[in-house]
């Protein structure tokens, strides 16, 4: 469902991704592991269409369509979701109204009418409960003053509400203590199904102990140098990247 071919990307004129090749099948969970500073987050940002990530050459097809020519919001509407390493604060915008607006943007793209306020509240209550999110979090401003755990839960909640077909997680484990990591991972596991593909970008093994990947890719110097199954992650954890 996602095919990356010979992708070269530079940021501020520095070449970060060098001939990257990666292929993700429907329903699979892929993990990309790499040392700090190796540019693995660049993969996530490039796929989501962040400005200033310049694609020099290469192709990416997402569900058979050219991904790179699309605007970031179109990629989102097509089903690509990026869980941010550091979710962004939106002061003054209440979480509930934000969530409703993004849900409606997705409904509109499917020619559906905007969601009824009562119905939205019902869904929000139900999904918040599953994630152990108190409802009063939704009357606060988006991510503003949220703890690390609350921010990540809010990301998972958005995943759940938007029902994406591809979820890219950028260092989702950073800033979480063991308990928060565990509950976040559990919530993500609940979203796993045969139609949904995951790309998990991480430095450590620990997240992968909770979310078991089908494939592990070792990323170094701008491209994938080794691919294996889950055992490759354990090997790296013991032996390091060198």
């Amino acid at each position: 469902m996602l095919d990356i071919k010979n992708l070269n990307v530079s940021v501020e004129d520095k070449l970060i991704l060098k001939n990257l090749n990666l292929s993700l099948g429907k329903g699979q969970v892929h993990a990309i592991m790499g040392p700090n500073g190796s540019g693995k987050s660049t993969i996530a940002h490039t796929l989501a269409g962040k400005p200033n990530y310049d694609v020099n050459s290469g192709e990416v097809s997402f569900n058979g369509e050219d991904l790179l020519s699309k605007d970031p919001y179109e990629r989102s509407l097509d089903g690509l979701f990026l869980a941010f390493q550091y979710p962004i604060e939106l002061p003054g915008v209440t979480n509930a109204s934000y969530l409703k607006q993004i849900v409606n943007a997705h409904r509109k793209s499917k020619n559906e009418t905007p969601i009824d306020a009562g119905e939205f509240l019902k869904i929000l209550k139900e999904k918040s409960k599953q994630l152990d999110i108190p409802m009063d979090m939704h009357s606060r401003f988006v991510n503003t003053g949220f703890s690390g755990g609350e921010k990540k839960k809010n990301e998972v909640l958005q995943m759940d509400l938007l029902d994406p077909s591809l979820i890219i997680m950028d260092e989702t484990d950073s800033g979480l203590d063991v308990d928060a990591l565990k509950s976040t991972a559990e919530a993500i596991n609940k979203l796993r199904n045969s139609d949904r593909t995951f790309l998990i970008i991480t430095h450590y093994l620990r997240l992968l102990e909770y979310i078991e990947p089908d494939f592990v890719h070792v990323f170094q110097n701008g491209s994938v140098i080794e691919t294996g199954d889950k055992s490759l992650a354990s090997k790296i954890d013991q032996e390091g990247y060198n």
Binding site: A48, G49, K50, P51, D71, P72, Y73, R75, S76, L77, F81, L82, F84, P87, I88, E89, L90, P91, G92, V93, T94, Y98, Q101, I102, A105, H106, S109, F141, Q158, L162
Partner: peptide, 29 residues
């Protein structure tokens, strides 16, 4: 910030919708 706009766009809002959301939040009071 560009980060705020990108965050909202990543969730499906176009550039104008994203800006409008942020600005309306700013002056909602």
């Amino acid at each position: 910030s560009d980060e705020q706009l990108f965050y909202c766009m990543q969730r499906g809002l176009n550039a104008e919708e994203a800006q409008s959301l942020i600005v309306n939040g700013f002056c909602k009071e």
